[in-house]
Design a protein around this nucleic acid. Sequence first.
DNA 1: GATTAGACTTGCGATCAGACGA
DNA 2: TCGTCTGATCGCAAGTCTAATC
Length: 873
Amino acid sequence: MVVQAPPKPILNNFNDDDDDDGPIVFKRGGNSTSKQNQPNLEAKKPSSSSQNSNGQSLNACEGKSPISSSNASPVKSPIGSPKASASSAKVSPMKPPVTYSRVPSSSIDQSKQVSKQVVSNAVKEETKPIVDDDDSEDDKPLSSRFKGSTNNANKGVTVPACVKDEHSDDDEVPLSSRFAAKSNAGSSSCKTLSSSEKKLFVSKIQLNGSTAKDKQQKSSAVPTKRPMDNKVPSNQSFAKKPKLSDLSTTKQVTVKAELKADDDDHLTISQRMKKASSSSNKSLSVKQKVTKVVSLSFKKTTKNNKKQMKNSKYSKSTKLQPGSSDGQKKWTTLVHNGVIFPPPYKPHGVKMLYKGKPVDLTPEQEEVATMFAVMKDTEYVQKPQFLQNFWNDWRTLLGKNHVIQKLEACDFNPIYEWHQKEKEKKKQMSTEEKKAMREEKLKQEEKYMWAIVNGVKEKVGNFRVEPPGLFRGRGEHPKMGKLKSRIRPSDITINIGKDAPIPKCPIPGESWKEVKHDNTVTWLAFWNDPINPKEFKYVFLAASSSLKGQSDKEKYEKARKLKDYIHNIRTAYTKDFASKDITKRQIAVATYLIDKLALRAGNEKDDDEADTVGCCTLKVANVECIPPNKLKFDFLGKDSIRYENTVEVELPVYKAIRQFQVAKKPTDDLFNSLDTSKLNAHLKELMPGLTAKVFRTYNASITLDEKLYEETEDGDVAEKIVIYNQANKQVAIICNHQRTISKSHDAQMSRLTEKLEELKGALKEFKTDLDRAKRGKPPLKDADGKQKRNLTPEAIEKKIATTNQKIEKMELSMKTKEDLKTVALGTSKINYLDPRITVAWCKRHEVPIEKIFNKSLLAKFTWAMDVDPQFRF
DNA sequence: GATTAGACTTGCGATCAGACGA
DNA sequence: TCGTCTGATCGCAAGTCTAATC
């Protein structure tokens, strides 16, 4: 019996795999290698090296003691209502996103981009913030208000240092830099206002200098002059940010003082904004048909769901009630089978060499030696930090009196070669053998793959305990190379329903560390990270689960709500660029950067983590002021991915940044009065539940929505997919989602170039043949001197047309390949783009959803599939 | 209020299977 | 049939943010 349609497929029973949507075979991925992004900071801290756990030192590598300090950022906030605000559908043309100027290598692009740049009106804006009635840009990402090239025309050369690339483009430069700083920088935030917003803004302006009452208020809270040239006192230059509790207080007072200007004195900004926005929702009138193809693809999903529901004894919906997040009950019943452990180590007995002689190792010692040996081909083994950390941990295992005394005298090649042979053997296995192995593995893992949450069978995300290995931190991580020890059942805490049977420990004679029944959390199990025992590794449900889906939907609804607030938020921070209160000014500028450049918040980091930054932790050296109003950003962000971007900003922002840098060292914090907790606390005053990361989701989704809406034209499905991918790429660039260039990229491009040349050669010959055929002459001999077959002019023309098509297709393919070689489209699709935008677009434009979302994404976004075709973000 | 613990999301690279083309 | 390419999937590192504790 079919109960209520759940938001995701429900499976028949706990263990079956009845159809093609049944259990998915999990593949074991390999280990990752380090990134190659190079830091470019003079201000970069020397990375501290690993702890030497046994106090021993390595001859070759000098150890440094890591100093651990923690500066977490507490923020408490109510989560905003997930209730959707019906989106207004403005059919105004969207301006392309920011075109940032490219940094080194592509001077060609720079010149192009500079030529396109709009003369800055920042100065004008500074004194004349409200100039225009047109509020059509309010719903757009700030970045998209900066005109720039939206196609690939401004690509430059991106070639890894070691590789020559004939297809010059700008990929060598970080994604963020691909858009030239084009900018009507000054017009970004306060150029356009709705009437209600204007009212608020005008009131504030009056507050700034009109009435006696206002003046009185102003004297206590607002500077009479912009303190642009105020020097930052030398004592505000800190190596570590001070916690300025007093400043927080000041901030609150100031914000409240400003609010007096409005009629709604009793309301918070967020309440007022909400009030103002509640009447602003608009609906789309455009109706478009949904094709059979689309219908079919959507029906198929629904059909599968229904089939699964019908057959399932676990058919209740797991959909959470509103408000069930935030430490509230996440589930009522939870049943699962715990986790699966990697198999115990099997010694191979291959002896490594020390000073040229074979060495006996215990299985434990051999296991760690093997972990190291198999990394021979990675860049890690070139890094002194990695070698030192590995040696420290391995030496502990070897013991002080072991024959091995120096890492440099070790030869791991015998083990490496053994490993290569094993790999080769595996590769040579027949398809049947491989299949049998997969099936065997699936059989062993099947029971761990599923959980029953509130009576519904849900997939578990990562039920395999991480195997031991050497830690592969990204960038210059101070702990890279340390031994990640084997996790045992006694390390693992299980979370399960009270009435559910406790999972049997899969390792005989051992038992779980603890069994909990906490239904306010979603994890099924956790253990402490052996590299950083303060941190945890969790086992969660899969992305396709209802629990995750609900959370995802709430995330997008929150970002969507920001659309109703964004205009006033921009107005508010623009006003604060010149605030006398340093914290307020820094919050304003930081919010501007987060909004405009999609920067991450930037929490404080410990010294035993990689030295990366986000907005709040930017160092002075990370931002260079280029007169008259450009900022050049250069820092390592999340995952040590370099963010390099020069962008034109509003003049007050430029001045404020310059001022924040005064009397500071390059390594000092740019925003010394700010941290993420202060920033987020401020954002929550503007909109319930607003945090820095919401801006990224908002800007990504609205960019996709606008671009799809404006740029999709009539055409075949393939052409529409190109439009979609272009929009997706735009978002990836805004978010700086990069990938390393594939090792085989150049070879692939060379091959394609060769083929292209061949085709062009053939085309030329066909044209000659055609010419001759028209004159009644036989074709010329081919390259081998053979006489070619006589063809009619019509036949040759047909060949020419076919060849032209092939050339076109190949050129497009090469362009796309080159274009996306450093851009990762997946991350934004998975995490930042509201799937309802995509689903609605597919429905409107008759594109099968499967062309855009793969199986995993279809499962993850089940909740979005029934969206109205006219949905706008 | 500051700090730490805890929970969850975001992100890139590796690996693999299947598609594709010679 | 075989080698190459591509996209899907997985692994796990590294972020963000909130709640709890001091």
